[in-house]
Amino acid sequence: MLADLIKHYLVANAHVDPLRLEQPDVKVSELGLDSLGLIEMLFEVEDRYGFQVDEPMRFQTMRFDEMVAAIEAEVRAHHGGELPEPAATETAATSG
């Protein structure tokens, strides 16, 4: 679920090739995101789960699936071990 949310964002907003995300061992550094792009991607999760992900730059050296697992662990840590349904985003309403 979390992986799909992030993949959808990357394809729709960051122009990442969807085929690249199908590769099981794809690395975050191969997605063409700069540091700001990485932070924008994390906001997609942060906005829905109501907390700021810790130390974003650590993801730059991970595989994509490792990053998703690490983010999921953080979401669970903020929600008593659960992975709740993501809240509707408010980004559209706040970007004017």
Partner: peptide
């Protein structure tokens, strides 16, 4: 339930 979301704002807020 939603209060903790208040401080999570878009990362491009400043450059926008």
């Amino acid at each position: 339930d939603n209060r903790r979301r208040a401080a999570v704002v878009h990362p491009l807020s400043v450059p926008r």
